[in-house]
Amino acid sequence: MSDLALLVEDLWVEYPARRGVVKAVRGVTFEVHRGETLALIGESGSGKTTLGLALVRLLPKAARIKRGRIMYYRNGTSQDILALNAEELRRFRWQECAMVFQGAQNALNPVLRIEAQFLDTARAHGLSDANAVRERAVELLKMVQLDPQRVLHSFPHELSGGMRQRVLIALGLLLQPQVIILDEPTTALDILTQRSIIEVLRRLRAQLDFSLIFISHDLSLAAELADRVATVYAGAIVEIGSVYDIFERPRHPYTLALTRSVPTVTGDMHPLASIPGSPPDLIAPPLGCAFHPRCPLATDQCKREEPPLERVGKEQMAACWHWREVNP
């Protein structure tokens, strides 16, 4: 257990809405090891982003963490994230755990040059040696394949979307955090730019030592980058396992359906199948298993009882009453 970086236990997050309470995260438990890449995949509206925001406690004011525990480990010490006070939380953010958001287009202050934004991030965490910070910034910008001198002296609007995303990734690495959360890092970018971002991430994974949690609806991205994959459905993890198990031997009908809904480049030709129905209503999720209205294997038991996440393989867990019938 000594290589644990992050441990999330039974996390529940809710938002009050006009129609009722949105249960965006429902009893999520997972762990992230040092140097590991975990992908959280699922459809839009499944609560992935809320989960990511909860990890750095950046949820909107209205949201409430109803239950759960988030433990962070580094150098033999542990911190209970939900118990941090404002100043401890401020220090924790970015220095220990950096979150790079979806939609990098507007993530940088439009009136400050990139250099100023690197410097103020460092200064906020007690690094006052501007030259050292600048050197580190140059190094990181080179790693993400940007021209450091040009970028540092630019304003955000002078950079393209892909460049801004890379700047943010470099900025995320500035303080050498142990955990980086990437929320939809390639969404809203064209296919070639997506490709180069993936390459950049791969190279960074090889060169630097950090754990990566990335949130995406893009399965091919998960297949390429992740060590482990967790499938999120209706605010809960329905299956988690190594990237190999998840893609080759999924045990949850939803994971199976997801893998069937994207074309493969190498593997066998199977007919593409979209998942019937629409994502569940998080205000009033279906009784029993949340996936049962869309599931081909659903039985009466699925409509009544919610299946627990149970061990289905050596390092694989799934929440399905009929997991034995999926990929038998």
């Binding site: 950046l58 953010r93 970015w94 220095q95 950096a98 958001f101 906020a124 965490h125």
Partner: peptide
């Protein structure tokens, strides 16, 4: 977004 990100940056 940049205000939220600024908070995330600590």
């Amino acid at each position: 977004d940049y205000v939220t990100v600024a908070r995330a940056r600590g």
